[in-house]
Design a protein around this nucleic acid. Structure first.
Lengths: 167, 167
DNA sequence: CCCCTATAGTTAGGGCCCAAACAAGATTAT
DNA sequence: ATAATCTTGTTTGGGCCCTAACTATAGGGG
């Protein structure tokens, strides 16, 4: 996603307001703060996964496959759930297959479809990474009180349902 | 950043807990929600910028340059502030220069350094995009009350200062 | 049966982003 | 003054992610 380590100071924002008078300085600063913090969260997650030789795209595929009854799903379904295009999913599966974490199986009834199956090596990888992931996410969130956690989720969901306001 | 349109249902999380008993299900679900919503925010910002032929990396460079007194900064300083590597910055500047929005000037005293300067075309581009950006970010944030805005920022900052908990 | 359309997956080409290796100029130590 | 070191910026090669165009299979209507 993005970045911006150096959040705009109020002073430099005032300069921008002088140039663009209609700006809601607080809103901009708040928006930038949210993006900046979550960018850092995403980077921290990347590091965690990287320690296990994974990256976010590949990670979510493994987790989704583990949820399936027979550890199997289709590229299209995975792409839909993760929110990437089918083309991107092809690349992810290429990488996972290269490392032996998933396998491509043909579909018996529909010649167009593939079945992506978590291999036993993939299961082992999850058994290695998931506890670490759970422990660290738990540690992160534990710095917030129950009330703070409930409130931030509620507020984020409100923001999420109003993203159309940016269109 | 990442994705995950299809947030883990509590049911499928229970299956994970059966496999990994120590997991804090709430923490995981909350973490995923935060990442998911901000991913959507980032996508919305991408769209906004894309309407003006920009992308996030290039956008922040222009904004940072506008803040400078003489509309000038160095690649290293820009990379530092935005939070990308110098190599990435080289690519960004290549693109912006190709489009005539910034120019590379040599540094008088230090032969290693460059001065990246916002061109008049770059200023015109900002005058076109910034008001739109401000208006839409303002519209997004306006769906929250003052109290909600204050609280989410405070909570985000707490999370941000405790990212080391994930290490 | 054949054509038309829809769906599943891949390929090609581009921008984003990084780490590692590099070139050139500046600084410091001896 | 010269060698070692640091800093600045670029290049190279890789994974991520998209859109557009493509291939192959499936399904429906004539």
């Amino acid at each position: 996603m993005l970045l911006l380590k150096d959040l705009p100071s109020t002073n430099s924002l005032l300069k921008l307001v002088a140039r663009y008078p209609d700006a809601d300085v607080n809103a901009i600063q708040e928006f930038a703060t949210i993006l900046s913090v979550t960018s850092d969260l995403s980077v921290a997650l990347d590091k965690l996964l990287n320690d296990h030789g994974l990256m976010q795209g590949r990670w979510w595929i493994l987790v989704l496959l583990l949820r399936e009854d027979n550890l199997t799903s289709s590229p299209s379904a995975l792409a839909e759930k993760i929110g990437v295009t089918k083309a991107t999913m092809t690349g992810f599966i290429d990488g996972l297959q290269r490392e032996g974490l998933v396998s491509r199986l043909t579909h018996d009834e529909d010649g167009r479809k593939l079945q992506i199956k978590l291999t036993s090596l993939g299961e082992e990888k999850l058994d290695e990474v998931v506890p670490d992931y759970y422990r660290k996410v738990g540690a992160l969130m534990s710095v917030l009180t129950e009330a703070q956690r409930a409130t931030i989720i509620e507020t984020m969901k409100i923001l999420g349902t109003n993203i159309d306001a940016m269109k």
